[in-house]
Computed example of a mutant assay.
Amino acid sequence: MSSRTEQQIMQGWDPAAEPLLTITCPAYNQREYIAQTLDSFLAQQTDFPFEILVNDDASHDGTAGVIANYAARYPRLIRPVFHQQNQYQQGKYCFPALFNMARGRYIAYCDGDDYWCDPLKLQKQVDFLQAHPDYVITYHDAVVVDAQGEHGLQLGPQLRCNATNMDLLKGRRISTLTAVFRNVLHELPRELEQAPMLDLCWWSLLGAYGKGKYMPDIAPGGYRVHCGGVFSMRSNKRKIHMSLQTHMALANYYQHQGDQKLYEHYLVQVFGLALAAISPGQKLRALALMLRNVTFNLFKRLNFSATRG
């Protein structure tokens, strides 16, 4: 458990000020990891007030008890939310409800089994956002951690860079546990309500508000891979299916928004993911069907042009 007291953490803060940033942390059956996660929040050194909003989705392994103990020790910092029935299993996500409970101007996100390593992480990210109103999100890298230790960085070299508005709109991949962004996501469009990978939807929606800043000077966080992970331990086939559902939801959303460019972008992603999900024989049949449809549409357009001519 963190050795810092609540008074030590809040030293130098304006006691009358509202939190400038809210850390949002969903947790479920993560008793083995949640203490390290919360300790990494409490290790943050900032000159601004922040709060910690922890959502326990009816854990049955003692996770809620650990959260309650921390909340009792840090009552002015930690706001716990305890559910009696599991919301995820009922198809209900804790977002954007948790974002709407946040009092901060900025949101930091970290799952209950991941953790941060840089005590100045929040200070650096908020300082940047305060000074650059054209940016909506900041992020950095994370190391993949399992029972055997660390296994390299989560982001590839091509993703360790800034993101334009369009990069975000197109679902730019970001290490979710590292993100700090402006608190502007108050509603989830109907088309995205059942998307399994909500973080991808967040980045796309944030693209309407600004750009993304990659911050290489922040020490990588820890992205934990274990048998209880909601996404990390899914089979490759299941991960493809989840990604397929999410991209299809985004395609529907942008179609209803009248954005043809983004609609087509996500349809292309859906096509690629669909091919990845089927057997080699089905791939050939799908490609043959696509070629037939493209040829038919091409001749149809050529015939229409000739008739008009």
Rank of each mutant, 00 (worst) to 15 (best):
Q7S: 15
Q8S: 14
M10S: 14
Q11V: 08
P15Y: 07
A16K: 15
T22R: 14
C25R: 01
A27C: 12
N29G: 08
A35C: 13
A43N: 14
Q44C: 02
L53Q: 09
D56I: 09
D56P: 04
D56C: 09
S59M: 07
S59E: 02
H60G: 10
D61C: 01
A64L: 03
A68M: 06
A72M: 08
A72H: 10
A72I: 02
P75L: 10
I78R: 03
R79W: 09
V81F: 12
H83P: 02
Q84F: 08
Q85E: 11
N86P: 04
Q87A: 12
Q87R: 15
Q90T: 11
Y93Q: 11
Y93N: 12
Y93V: 08
F95D: 03
L98N: 09
L98P: 06
A102T: 09
A102R: 14
R105Q: 11
D111V: 05
D111H: 14
D118P: 05
D118Y: 04
K121H: 04
Y135V: 05
D141E: 08
A142Y: 10
Q148E: 09
Q158N: 10
C161T: 14
N165C: 14
N165F: 00
M166Q: 13
L169C: 09
R172C: 05
T176P: 00
L177R: 00
F181E: 02
F181A: 07
R182S: 03
E191Q: 15
E193N: 10
L198Q: 10
W202N: 13
W202K: 15
W202I: 06
G207Y: 01
G212W: 09
M215V: 10
A219V: 13
P220G: 05
H226I: 04
G228H: 10
G228W: 06
G229C: 05
G229P: 03
F231Q: 06
S232A: 14
S235D: 02
N236A: 10
L244A: 06
T246K: 07
L250V: 09
Y253F: 15
H256W: 05
K261A: 09
E264H: 13
V270C: 13
V270G: 04
F271Q: 00
S279Q: 08
M290V: 04
A306F: 14
R308P: 00
